[in-house]
Design a protein around this nucleic acid. Structure first.
Lengths: 190, 190
DNA sequence: GGGTAACGTTACCCTGGAGTAACATTCTGA
DNA sequence: TCAGAATGTTACTCCAGGGTAACGTTACCC
């Protein structure tokens, strides 16, 4: 009489597990989330989680890696190769805010991890991810300090913006573009 | 044969405990820090920690409360009542950066907690603290979104700045003042 | 159609670390 | 001077939750 669970192909099951993991991690953080609970939410039992991901930390790492890749892909998507730096920045910001809006859980975990890392090894990966974005902004602005500040402004605004009733994406983008004009190399006329 | 520990008055002992707690929490986070370890670092045993603070969460909360108060006091200190908004902001930023530099552990914990809260009840307190700062900035800038973005820029820059070899405080302040000019109500001439 | 690999489960083990009981040693003040 | 209130310690209890062993069940493929 055991075996209540429907059989599913590995990729599908993994998606369910990662979804449940993301929900748990984003709302309760790594430590308050238990493997039993994540398993239950994914409609499966604990040993499956371990067979597919190895350990709780590995599950967390897998979730972060996928989420990070989605973020990078999302922000890279807009093809704006031969447009002005300003236009490219604007497109990037819109893409970023869109990603954040559509992947709240992922963004929450990613953002939390970047300031309060759970694990040293994971911290390095997150730092690398953020580093790539900072590097991009640094070449854009010509100053690392400014790039770091701008990244912080963007992250903070994004998180706040999510908590607003109905986020008007263009307003958020404008606020950031406005800031970008403050000390950037490109035009100050807008 | 027991009783190896030197006797100390309560306030002194508390300071030692809070210092050890801060070191542990800032370097390893709440969950990876154990009460045994904090006790040892404070030169005392676990039951003392419990007698003085009640529970691990209460110890953490006490540490955060004190740290938050120090931050507020530090930033409030510069008496600039009847100066221009710009001068007041500059003084506030300098005071903030000075605080951060002199209380690295406290800042690390505070900052981490604001993005990845350990506990719902504590999260509210931190949110209230940040809310007060945002409110101040909002009246200064006349726009909440901008205030949130600016706060994020400041926090991010402060944390990055700490990791630099020898932080020149005025440069960091200038970067932020420059950003503040972007869309603020006060002069755009600087 | 049967061997094996993958999917899935129940029922357990085991440790880290939060929290406490019970006891020893000083300090203080009436 | 001695009662009781602090400061302090040793030596536990106890359990949440990470991790696993052992055992069904279904699918696939030669």
């Amino acid at each position: 009489m055991p075996t209540s669970g429907q059989r599913l192909a590995r990729p599908d099951r993994e998606r369910l597990m990662l979804g449940a993991a993301g929900d748990a991690f984003s709302t309760q953080g790594f430590h308050r989330s238990s493997m039993d609970e994540i398993a239950r939410a994914a409609g499966v039992t604990k040993p499956m989680l371990y067979r597919y991901f190895g350990s709780k930390e590995d599950l967390y790492a897998a979730y972060l890696r996928i989420t990070g890749r989605e973020l990078i892909d999302g922000v890279r998507a807009p093809e704006t190769r031969d447009q002005s730096p300003e236009a490219r920045l604007r497109a990037g910001l819109r893409a970023f805010l869109t990603y954040v809006e559509e992947h709240r859980a992922g963004w929450t975990v990613l953002h939390g991890e970047s300031t309060a890392p759970t694990d040293a090894h994971i911290a390095r990966e997150i730092a690398a991810l953020r580093g790539r974005i900072i590097a991009m902004l640094t070449t854009l602005f010509g100053d690392e300090a400014l790039a770091v500040a701008f990244a912080g402004a963007t992250e903070s605004l994004a998180t706040w913006w999510l908590s607003q009733p109905q986020p008007p994406i263009d307003e958020a983008t404008d606020v950031l573009m406005n800031i970008a004009h403050a000390a950037s190399g490109f035009d100050r006329t807008a």
